[in-house]
């Protein structure tokens, strides 16, 4: 197993037809890390992955594996495993031959190819399907073949391009756990592309949030979840309420806000001064119906098992998303409050 201590992306940039699809991506990946590239479609996350894999040449910047330069090597000489969104299984080869393809390309002895292929098939529990063609498998099984094919080579880095996006919700959860389990048990280093924040938060050790080809924030799931760097990241991290407001006063660590038909107290994420236009980010679960607070009108109530999800409107007609345990009726007027430490104020 060829491995590295760290893989360094240095100012990686890729242009498509005069437009930057990815720019200024600098990131150091340590061995054994699980990195998620997160962002909406068109944000450059797949471009970043393809640049790492060598399927796209860089316009600018470099990629280093410890001391050696990597971005000048073709994909077949980088020794990375890749799982494609469409799985890209070879349709004319059986499951076994798909998995052993990479081993055969390395011209390993026949015994070793057989042994390692058997192990990989067992790892993803496809023993009964080893002789089938990919077309005869279900989506989840194809997904497992794709993963086995990538990890059988014990690559120094595994790249995954939205591997779960073609699966149904239940299977997606199962495979998510499966991917994390494989990552840990095989000691892999993984770069995982997704647009699903829940997937990224639950899988990754560190997340890279991209938008319009630029890095918005790099951090651990906790950092991103609790301290998004700006309103865009907050939007992606489940801060469904992003309210345009005005700073009324600053008292030490909290600021008083006004606007959108609400008055709130919040914690600033950057420097703010009275009179500034800001965006207040609040998660629906941090906005609670309570006896005191701002009056709003309930519009839609959705049952979600443990809780109710409520869409309400302020006096100025701004939509608010919140949670409640008791069921209000549409049209009811309720009052809502939020803990100032849970209201993030983005300049």
């Amino acid at each position: 197993m060829t491995t590295f201590q760290e893989l360094r992306l240095d100012g990686v940039r890729r242009r498509f037809g005069g437009k930057d699809a990815l720019t200024g991506l600098s990131l150091t990946i340590r061995r054994g890390e699980f990195i998620a590239l997160l962002g909406p479609s068109g944000c450059g996350k797949s471009t970043a992955l393809n640049c790492l894999a060598g399927l796209l040449p860089l316009t600018d910047g470099s990629i280093w594996q410890d001391g050696s330069r990597l971005d000048t090597l073709p994909p077949e000489r980088r020794g990375f495993g890749m799982v494609f969104q469409s799985y890209a299984l070879f349709p004319h080869l059986s499951v076994r031959k798909n998995i052993s393809f990479g081993l055969q390309m390395r011209r390993l002895p026949r015994d070793e190819v057989r042994r390692r292929t058997d192990e990989a098939i067992k790892l993803v529990r496809l023993e009964e399907h080893a002789r089938k063609l990919p077309g005869q498998l279900s989506g989840g099984q194809q997904q497992r073949v794709a993963i086995a094919r990538a990890v059988v080579l014990e690559p120094s880095l595994v790249l995954m391009d939205e591997p779960l996006s073609n699966l149904d919700a239940k299977l997606r959860l199962e495979m998510r756990t499966e991917i994390r389990r494989l990552h840990q048990s095989l000691g892999l280093t993984t770069v995982y592309v997704t647009h699903d924040q829940e997937e990224a938060l639950s899988l990754a050790d560190r997340l890279v949030v991209l938008r319009d080809g630029r890095v918005e924030q790099i951090g651990t799931p906790e950092e991103l979840h609790n301290r998004p760097a700006n309103a865009h990241v907050a939007d992606f991290m489940g801060y469904r309420n992003l309210l345009p407001m005005k700073v009324k006063a600053v008292h030490g660590d909290t600021v008083a806000l006004d606007g959108s038909g609400l008055t709130l107290e919040g914690t600033p994420v950057g420097p703010v001064a009275p009179g500034d236009d800001v965006v207040a980010g609040i998660r629906p679960e941090d906005l609670r119906a309570g006896p005191h607070g701002v009056p709003v009108t309930v519009e839609v109530v959705e049952y979600q098992g443990r809780e109710l999800a409520i869409e309400a409107r302020t006096a100025e007609g701004v939509a608010l998303f919140l949670r409640a345990t008791e069921r209000p009726s549409p049209g009811d007027r309720i009052t809502v409050t939020a803990d100032p430490s849970r209201v993030l104020v983005f300049p």
Binding site: G81, F84, A88, F90, F101, M105, L153
Partner: peptide, 14 residues
């Protein structure tokens, strides 16, 4: 599918 070619490349095929 052109992705097949790319998949083969990442698996070490020239």
């Amino acid at each position: 599918d052109p992705t097949l070619d790319r998949a083969a490349a990442t698996l070490g095929a020239g």
